[in-house]
Design a protein around this nucleic acid. Structure first.
Lengths: 345, 345
DNA sequence: GTGAAAGCGCTAACAC
DNA sequence: GTGTTAGCGCTTTCAC
């Protein structure tokens, strides 16, 4: 049930002084006699006093708590970002409350409401896959509570955000495939209302263009980022003649799903089809063959998101909207190396 | 900065009634005239009133917040359990604050202190790998704040916990290897102060015994659960003559690390060495070959941990300590199938 | 140098 | 039926 913790009152009573004296004594106020100050501090120490954050919150209208809303907690990408947020938050004396939208806009709306009700000092949010309208963030903006988006963002002009340069990363990835001898490159994109989908498609087309390859509609397939729909998209692409010799996936879920489908047909990666994706360190090196991918600096993204947020929380006067663009890194691995290797040999 | 939200006071002023009338009106108290009640409710609705949890917390000495301390957030196992906790907590109107011990007892102590300072209503904890003393949980016990451990536990008599039956799962896994034709089975165990290490070793020995195989000291190696130390342990085991024909790892990190070392030596899994572990659905099916493993019902473990905690939070009178033992499931996959397959052919 | 009092938002016991 | 008051724990202004 939770036995009451010591309060200033308890200490005051014990010492026969008033509550305000104790309060002042603990924070080296003007003039409390040094002896009294010492007595107060010693007793507080002994009794393990810490200020009640609820009382402080009420008074200061600050909870030292921030709300984090992510599409899911389990995916390495989000877990790792949460980890970055947590590390920076802890360093700064903030607590983080996690809420998962489970890729559903309805859940996301509820999460916003719940965390608003909790009176968090700020939000860090990555949009759910199904979030195609953004009015539920109005209330956050209206209450002047800082909000930082990461990865899947919206309303860039109104809210700060942390992203990677999707266009150039996607361009680089596409060109990497061409350089390694692939020319029939398909792309499995995400839902078209998400910024990440649009930007990666743009980079894909840009990369093809740079390499004087035509963009062909039948090699672009959208999916909803679920394993099943990624499988469907893969199979659709595999019905092309000639077969694509490379698939570039919008994220790791898509790529893993594609890999399974490709294996089912007894095609080899990268011999028959190269696979590259936007993904993260961990999984990419565990699968066989290792996956060529653009890796996000996830931990750093989390820390940066919190930093931006903290700035806004502390600068009560001027809130300027910032956008941090972090560098993603192309890491070539086995899954896209076949043709080049053959040529070289 | 956070514009003040509407309070009862605001509504009271607008309606020209007292604060307590508003409070009562909102919760259908005895007797407030129906018309007034309606006026109050309508205005509250219109102005988007929700009770301030800080004020409620102060008053009720309950925060509707629980602290979760895990060794890390990024590992699928923990992320998935957190996800289970979050889902059940949200259903019950609780918030969860996540803290990561980063496998360090010092960080774990800090986390306990911080969350205690935050006045959480309860704790859900998985011990860090380096936690070999348990006094830092005294304060939680003394303050009569409920605490539920999961997976890596201590002080079973004092705190509730959620675990799997490690002994029989490890036994089953060992016997599975023997049944599939392996007989020179090594085990990479965790730190000896952790319950999971001890119990899995016990199961391993028990399994060997059941199959009339001798336990041999040189086939048991402890490691600290880091990738590097798991690699060291693997290499130590691989210096045995004859080579072990199977390695059973205490968890997934260990197994992935072992797999990399085995490949470095151009040994094949499962042809030369079978690999089995305690791990989770996701990774096991992504690696090639798929991993035979005892899978934890992680999401369910999280939900169960919260359920136990909630019971204790709500039953202020009698706190009985419960231990939930969930069923782990052996899932045979490719990584332990070779010898049997050969024999059968 | 130290205490009293107000107020952050809310509930509940007690008035009338 | 509705208002007043005290109190949850704390800070801060104003007295003395």
């Amino acid at each position: 049930m939770g036995r009451r913790r010591v309060s200033l009152k308890d200490i005051a009573k014990e010492l026969g002084v008033s509550i305000s004296t104790v309060s002042r004594g603990l924070k080296d106020h003007y003039d409390i006699s040094p002896e009294l100050k010492k007595k107060i501090k010693d007793l507080a120490e002994k009794w393990n006093y810490t200020p009640n954050p609820l009382a402080m919150g009420l008074l200061k209208q600050k909870t030292k708590t921030i709300g984090v809303i992510v599409p899911d907690i389990v995916t390495y990408f989000y877990a790792s970002i949460i980890s970055g947020i947590e590390s920076k938050a802890t360093e700064n004396g903030y607590y983080i409350v996690i809420a998962s939208s489970q890729e559903s806009i309805e859940k996301e709306k509820e999460n916003v409401k719940n965390l608003l009700d909790l009176r968090v000092d700020g939000f860090i949010v990555c949009l759910s896959q199904s979030t195609n309208s953004f009015e539920h963030f109005d209330e956050i903006g209206d209450s002047e509570i800082p909000l930082v988006f990461f990865d899947r963002i919206c309303r860039k002009k109104e809210f700060s955000s942390v992203i990677i340069d999707n266009v150039s990363a996607a361009k680089e990835l596409t060109m990497h495939l061409v350089e390694n001898g692939y020319s029939n490159i398909a792309h499995i994109a995400g839902p078209s209302h998400l910024n990440i989908s649009k930007e990666r498609i743009e980079g894909y087309k840009y990369g093809l263009d740079q390499c004087k390859l035509p963009y062909r509609e039948e090699l672009l397939e959208h999916c909803d980022l679920s394993i099943d729909d990624a499988a469907r998209a893969t199979n659709k692409l595999l019905r092309n003649h000639p077969l694509p010799d490379a698939i570039f996936g919008v994220n790791d879920t898509v790529i893993f799903s594609a890999m399974k489908e490709i294996r089912k047909r007894n095609l080899k990666v990268p011999d028959d089809i190269a696979l590259v994706g936007f993904t993260d360190e961990f999984h990419a090196t565990v699968v066989e063959p290792n996956l060529t991918a653009v890796t996000h600096p996830t931990f750093e993204m989390g820390r940066e998101a919190f930093s931006l947020l903290l700035e806004e929380i502390e600068n009560e006067v001027s809130r300027d909207i910032k956008q941090t663009v972090l560098q993603a890194k192309l890491i070539p691995r086995e899954s896209s190396s076949f043709k080049k290797a053959n040529k070289v040999q």
